[in-house]
């Protein structure tokens, strides 16, 4: 029994020594392993697209620069119409609240029946 215990103790001591024995890899083996790794190095994935500014992202969402140019032109035209108020528009009286109220009723916008009542 005691002998068995001694054997176990001796064995444990040998195992403990073996566990401590951890030498680094020999240089030439390390170099061979790294050469293998380099030859099998997977290609790095393509770099992620450059982060866009919010304006650029909005532009892209609306269809790119041709659409943006059209949109800008339309905006400028709207502003110009609002500011310059072409004479043709003022004649309609649409820009005066009173004019709209006084000059036009809903029925005025409806098609007339005159053409149906005429002889023919």
């Amino acid at each position: 029994m005691t002998e068995r215990k001694n054997d176990d103790t001796a064995l444990e001591a040998l195992f403990a020594e073996a566990r401590r024995e951890s030498a680094p890899l020999p240089d030439d083996l390390f170099a061979r392993i790294m050469a293998d790794a380099e030859s099998r190095l997977p290609a790095a994935p393509a770099a992620s697209p450059r982060r866009q500014s919010r304006l650029a992202a909005l532009g892209a969402m609306l269809g790119g620069w041709p659409s943006m140019a059209g949109l800008a032109t339309a905006t400028l035209a709207g502003v110009w119409i609002g500011v310059a108020q072409p004479s043709g528009l003022s004649d309609l009286g649409l820009w005066s609240g009173d004019g709209v109220q006084a000059g036009y009723e809903l029925g005025d916008m409806m098609p007339g029946y005159d053409s149906l009542t005429g002889e023919g």
Partner: peptide, 23 residues
Amino acid sequence: AFGNGDLSAARLLTARLGPRVLG
């Protein structure tokens, strides 16, 4: 990281695991 193209990760892995595998 190595799978994503990082060779230095292979160097670290070799240093960490290589000696144990060899022993």
